[in-house]
Design a protein around this nucleic acid. Structure first.
Lengths: 179, 179
DNA sequence: TATTGTTATACTCTATAACTATA
DNA sequence: TATAGTTATAGAGTATAACAATA
């Protein structure tokens, strides 16, 4: 899909009103023809579009549960790292530690995870997923899987693999270098 | 998100001392010993990681401007679609029309865009970017370009192209109707 | 003194609903 | 009746600051 967004005078000013551009941004849900302009030249825009859909779809599919944002990924990280501390959790998710407190509060209320005071460092709470949390996690991962499949099913296995690889390379550049 | 110019001086007392930069273990996910577990099996997770970084980096780089979220992409879409209506704009960005109102309010206050009452449909406001907005847009696109380059410079041009193509195919599956 | 967890708080973001003026 | 825009508002999400317990 070559990014042919029509004329894209990158560095210069574009003639705003001269050309009767294909605006037409009317109502029709079937054929909105809004141009992306320079925005279409960037990967970040495409990334956000797709990711937006995935997260919204997941939120909709799990709306009945009333899950707060970040709860699922936190639970998954606790599962993968039994005994992890709240501060390590917050670092991994990229949020403040106070957010982790609220999330773990919820997880405990739901009976999906539990805090245990660390024996080696009594400041810490070691986090663990409960049996109920494991079961819920299975269900939630199923939702994620389904959500992704709907978007990825048009990509061949090789392309999916390649996509992951490219994203990992990008992330490595972030993780390795400066921020 | 740090709002930079907030300066919310509440109850005084600022320690006035910065942390001693904990060697590593946090800023760099590269060396993190935290396992991703099943989370690592999904593309959406990778997508979010990278996109999170890009949007945060952009927000940090433009913190001095005090731009509200969505303002940049809205301005870019107005540039690409002169005369676009607010409701079409909100659809394209994926937000409620009331959000578009607030954003365009800001854009007008900043002198970067303007509303003109549509001549054909007097309910509508046709949106246009001003000369000042064009200039600002150039600067902001430069920031985006720089932000992306830092992450993409390890991908070959062919790989970048391929990445865009794959993301577009995914988005087409979304826009195509299955939601 | 530094770190973990906690609480309180403020600010941003966003959707919903009601309203107007047009169509 | 339906649509574009507007306003008011409520709720979610998140960061900041201050603090207690522990290291």
């Amino acid at each position: 899909m070559s990014k042919s967004n029509g004329t894209k005078a990158k560095t210069g000013r574009r003639p705003a009103k001269a050309a009767a551009a294909p605006v037409r941004a009317d109502g029709g849900p079937g054929g909105s023809q809004v141009s992306l302009g320079r925005l279409g030249d960037f990967v970040g825009f495409r990334l956000r579009r797709v990711q937006n859909h995935l997260s919204r779809h997941f939120a909709t599919a799990t709306a009945a549960e009333g899950l707060r944002s970040g709860l699922f990924s936190s639970l998954a990280l606790i599962e993968a790292n039994p005994g992890i501390s709240q501060i390590a959790l917050s670092r991994e998710v990229g949020q403040d530690k106070s957010v982790a407190v609220a999330i773990v509060d919820d997880l405990e209320k739901l009976g999906w995870a539990e805090r245990r005071r660390s024996t080696t460092d009594r400041r810490r709470h070691a986090l663990y997923v409960t049996a109920a949390g494991q079961a819920k996690l299975d269900a939630l991962f199923a939702v994620v899987d389904e959500t992704e499949s709907a978007v990825l099913h048009q990509l061949s296995p090789g392309e999916k693999q390649l996509l992951s690889e490219l994203l990992d390379r990008m992330y490595a550049a972030i993780a390795g270098g400066e921020s």
